[in-house]
Design a protein around this nucleic acid. Sequence first.
DNA 1: ACGATTCACTGACACGTGTGACCTGTCGAC
DNA 2: GTCGACAGGTCACACGTGTCAGTGAATCGT
Lengths: 346, 346
Amino acid sequence: MDRPRRPTSADVAARAGVSRSTVSYVLSGSTQHSFPQATRDRVLLAASELGYTPHAAARALRRGTSGVVLLVLADVPIGANLGSMLAEMTTAVAATGRSLVTWTGGVGPTLRETLAHLDPLVVLTMAPLAPAEADAVGNAGIPLVAMPYAGSATQTVGPAAPSRGELQVGALQLQHLAAYGHRRVAVLTVAEPRLALFAHGRVEGVRRAALDLGLDQPPVLALGEPDDAAVAAVAQALTEWVRGPGPVTALCCYNDLYAAVALAAAARCGLRVPRDLSVAGIDDDPMGRFLDPPLTTISFDFRDTARAVVEQVAAVLEGAPPPPPGPSSQVLRVVERASVGPPPVR
Amino acid sequence: MDRPRRPTSADVAARAGVSRSTVSYVLSGSTQHSFPQATRDRVLLAASELGYTPHAAARALRRGTSGVVLLVLADVPIGANLGSMLAEMTTAVAATGRSLVTWTGGVGPTLRETLAHLDPLVVLTMAPLAPAEADAVGNAGIPLVAMPYAGSATQTVGPAAPSRGELQVGALQLQHLAAYGHRRVAVLTVAEPRLALFAHGRVEGVRRAALDLGLDQPPVLALGEPDDAAVAAVAQALTEWVRGPGPVTALCCYNDLYAAVALAAAARCGLRVPRDLSVAGIDDDPMGRFLDPPLTTISFDFRDTARAVVEQVAAVLEGAPPPPPGPSSQVLRVVERASVGPPPVR
DNA sequence: ACGATTCACTGACACGTGTGACCTGTCGAC
DNA sequence: GTCGACAGGTCACACGTGTCAGTGAATCGT
């Protein structure tokens, strides 16, 4: 019941009445040899009739390169718009004659297995890899490229070295609030260990920007799952933060989901947004537009980033050994909606 | 500047002072031959010192199988919780000694290229593939397995044959509303062609369930991008639907995002949810919980589905030719929150 | 007329691995 | 003393492809 063995180039050669070499030359469209149109047609016809597809493994073995680019995704909640980014990157990589596939990490050290199966040309990461995974990639001698958004991928010093992109996001959030006149801001972040790398960077970005602008260091509240308990926790923190001599007038939230938590908590406390409290999110989740009030957030230009990443990949594959530090150009943008406004007059 | 050629099993053999065959037998842990511990240790040491990793392509060529399972994702907005599903499936597939990677379709017929690069054992799909893509898979002689949620993958008859899972989702939505006493329901769907396969199935599911329950066929409104124009369109439709002799008392929405659009539109019309109008979503988007009111929706058990899919894959690979029709057990569940209630008394 | 060039094509090798068949020495059994 | 069994290991092939170096015939230049 097994399939009748897929046709090889030898089968095509036999059917076309030529040698296997000829088949290879014709099908690969080599410009070294030029064959008369008649021969070429015979080969193409035979190949098409047999449904011939070159064996990927054999080709990779011979060429010495697999043509696969592997994007490693951590086991983090995939934002709604990461999908667009994937599609964008896939087409961009395809344009260079290679293929992009993604691997979603789960538990257990299975990345090594996957590398053994795929033997990718290069591994892309959205976030710094866990040490074990980084080792697996390094051991296999595969170049590792970090998305410009994520900073350096090989940067494994310290428990969680904040990546440049995350720092910028946090800073942008705070700067936007400061531009509206907010002087005292609080931060809502997440406790989930898998998100620690993102979370730490964003908080740190807020902190540093606050330092630069001469503002007080913001209080930070780390939340668990985004459920009713989280809303209660935020509500309680808010009641403390908004009374007192230097009340908090704005919230930097880990992402739009936690900004939604903050909005719910504010409503529970009787605080009106943005009159009494401003709330800023991150990620431009499509649903944020329909919260009450519509959420001001920070969006991320996938088109641009995808292009930059693919260029980096191409550069690395051409033999440029040092992955150039991400240009991290204009990929971040504040999406102004109604959840951020001037602070209340005292 | 090129890397110094990765070590092969021959290098390991030379260093360990044995033949290449011995290396292969030792490293593959074959039970055919048994080597004394001393030899085994020498080989393992040499391999570890050289950082030897078997060449994936060569192994695949020899074994005749690539060990790769490819999941093809259409270029559709990735829901927030698809990530969990991917992680789940990845680990489940890894447990069978294979690797799952996903390919996100973009524009252009690049799936063929990717198949040529990867030569996967089997291709999984979330939704029926476009004819060109299905052809590519078929031509390469690769088995195609559809997720139980998605119905048959090879089912390419008609422009959009509704898949079983989608039908069930729509039906469940309507049944839940009917159980609350709603007799006249409207449907909010999407016009986006890429989503047509999903959308059509869900609407059809609502329709058939309405038929079974003896309710009127629901009016349907197809929306574009989820923006303010969409809110306006829904608001206008609502003003028509809720007045008249048989007013609409509930809305079945394409997903949670469009349910959020509906909530915004209801607010704009001065309709209170759920007192004046009930709204049901699909997908259990994490943010739906924080809408006002919290959204009643239909969730989808990834754990179960992932397991079922992986079992199907295993079955197909063991040589079971007909992919058994998806059991589609208890993977769908109504998440009751506050946006659905009894219809208004007249 | 004859070497030189081109045309159309082919033979053979290499890529790195897994594995069935084989080979050598030693030991126990008859 | 011979045979079989067995441990310990090696040989050589096959997987399917890309490509370098040729090869025979035809054509060309002089």
